[in-house]
Design a protein around this nucleic acid. Sequence first.
DNA 1: TTTTGTGGTGTTTTT
DNA 2: CACCACAAAA
Length: 863
Amino acid sequence: MSNSFDDIPFFDEEPGEAPRKPQAPAPAAGGIAARAMAARDGGKRPDYLAGLNPEQTEAVETLEGPVLVLAGAGTGKTRVLTTRIAHILSTGRAFPSQILAVTFTNKAAREMKERIALLVGGAVEGMPWLGTFHSIGVKLLRRHAELVSLRSDFTILDTDDVVRLVKQLIQAEGLDDKRWPAKQFAGMIDTWKNKGLSPADIPEGDARAFANGKGRELYFAYQARLMTLNACDFGDLLMHPIAIFRKNPDLLKEYHQRFRYILVDEYQDTNTAQYMWLRLLAQRPSRKSTSPLVGAMPGRAEGDIPSDSGASTPASVGSPDIFPTRGEIRDTTINICCVGDDDQSIYGWRGAEVDNILRFEKDFPGAKVIKLERNYRSTEHILGAAAHLIAHNEGRLGKTLFTDRVDPEDAKVQVHASWDSEEEARAIGEEIEVLQRKQHNLNDMAILVRASFQMREFEDRFVTLGLNYRVIGGPRFYERLEIRDAMAYFRLVAQPADDLAFERIINTPKRGLGDTTVRALHDYARARDIPMLAAAADIIETDELKPKARKALFDVVHSFRNWQQRLETTPHTELAEQILEESGYTDMWKADKTAEAPGRLENLKELIRSMESFESLRGFLEHVALVMDAEQNEDLDAVSIMTLHSAKGLEFDTVFLPGWEEGLFPHQRSLDESGRAGLEEERRLAYVGITRAKRRCHIWFVSNRRIHGLWQSTIPSRFLDELPETHVEVAEVEQSYGGYGRGGYGQSRFDKADPFANSYSTPGWKRAQANKTDATRDNWGTRSGHAVERIGYGESGPKGRTIEGELVAKSTSTEPSRFQMGDRVFHLKFGNGNITGIEGNKLTIDFDRAGQKRVLDGFVERV
DNA sequence: TTTTGTGGTGTTTTT
DNA sequence: CACCACAAAA
């Protein structure tokens, strides 16, 4: 992504040659005709096309008109997308700057850029319009900010800023912010914006539902406030461009001329606003209608027609479309290619409309639909299991993945049962170690959970085992408190009107500028309609404040003046460092004696380091606003732990799917709130999970799980019953199946003696049966006589044989420990503690917060 | 201003 | 149960 606002000149270049006429359908790749043609062309069939299957080739070569590529999991979706772009470029149909390619995540955008670079040999510098919806939105908006009354140096607020702002507004309205939580309203605004609804457009019901009927009013006030702050929220990055295009048909036309080819990744995840945005860009003025507005309206229910849509109302005349406001696009010269998979739509809860993909052919009559069903990732069993499961959903476009790489050695999908979640973690840990001993990389394994609280148990277990793991997702770097504080300083230097930043840091570190001062500043600023920093500069000239506060404020204001002056002269990384030093911010953490303070200082250093690759402070701020992720270190060999949601798009040799129980997966809330649709989305999530696996897929369920502190017995997920017997087996069970304590939900196959009749004779099942009856077990499921077959643990030799529950060390060192009894140590996960026991490399530590734990010495440091 | 106590909550998450 | 946010008390 470009790090600065400077841009290639607008509408500069034209292609060297006019776009060619549409070609005749491409002959099947590898076919005789194709080879003959290749020979005719001097045998120079571009090598980027080599190795594509016929469907992929068609998807790449059908450049004219609308195309929908239904790409199942692992069918080479990204490859098609990137090759298609390479094809457009290398055949001279368009310049890089004439291709609009949108993705959902920065990661996907980055990957695409890299892969195109590989295909066309590094010349992707000029793909300025490849990016996420939001980053492209920012780009448009920076150019045309004045059309929506913004200045082009507007700030992008993140969710945290938004919530604080909303809270202020709620309080300003004299409402109880307990009864009307800011967070909830911020969420509502987001939902509205995802649907493309501005304050005037929201349904009356929604408007009344919040704040004693003041919902709409608040939304208006919020937008007004954003204007004065010269700020945007994420939703605005979509909404503003839509408004700009609607109000400025000529400008839109310029973009129509510019974007000769439009490509959309993960189309099933588009929300209504994104859909509208795309339509505006895709819908060329047809011969009949000159209005580009037609059919680009949101909403479906009566009464939520956008106010600014003027006289042009729905264009569905003659179309039996059940979405009357979504007309078809008749002019089929639009070269738009959407790639997606309806079976992997898992973001309905945040506004994605699967309907967009289901309706593609209606929206774009004459669209070519190409299905990619040949899977290059998984074994037949994995695909078979996934296919059978997803077939339980209705309303699919209907694809069935297949592979012809069939290997009798391939394992079936394994279903395991455990007594409780602790045992589940233990069992999966063991399974991983077995694989590890067979020289499998930890990097090739992943544990995919439904909800993040499940991760903890695995982390605990892996810490004990000394097994490397990596948590993907979770709290992100730029969301940490210290990073956000630092960023607020930088933001305020770059954009003095950023009141949210001002309020965040005005008393951080403590300067004695408490609530009273801030409120005074706030009132002063509002009364004069100036930013708070400016108000502060004014107010220190008066004697409105107490001398103490006045002095403190004086210092701050002057510091900021200083920094702003240095903005042009001092290199930005240096300046950033100076800001943090001179403001006393780093000192604040140095003085802090809590366990996390050193980590925070380290993060601040990391922040400065990461600024180096940007050319300016502004460029960096923009990056952080849009790209909230920081890279993980890939060097480490570690098991990945993540949610199913964040696993989409990834693949692993071995995938573990724990927690397949009713209530958790499918999640109860999903069922309660969205009923059947919710269940289907959960099922798609299961489908995504299974199809992440290349070779091995292990599904787990437990009989007891602790939910909100209390133990509950659980029943196996209905999804287990939806798996096909031919591709699934009950695993070589290495632990018991807790078959009692079942709730009254319904009959499950796993309630019966033989869940899979034809697996009945497998050793695994027999053992499971044996375990079930023989194991003596107390209420907590600990069994006697369950010695795990586990010999030759790491370098520890036969000594490594373990009994359930014993601490297992990867290597038992005989060297004297580098620690002593009573040493004060720090552990990344557990914090500070004192050593109370030493046994080789195993330490017993009394942690201040986490209590007594046994950990390997490699994981702690002396404080 | 910092500490301690209370209450409310408890999926999924990108931008 | 365990965490967070926020409010009252030290």
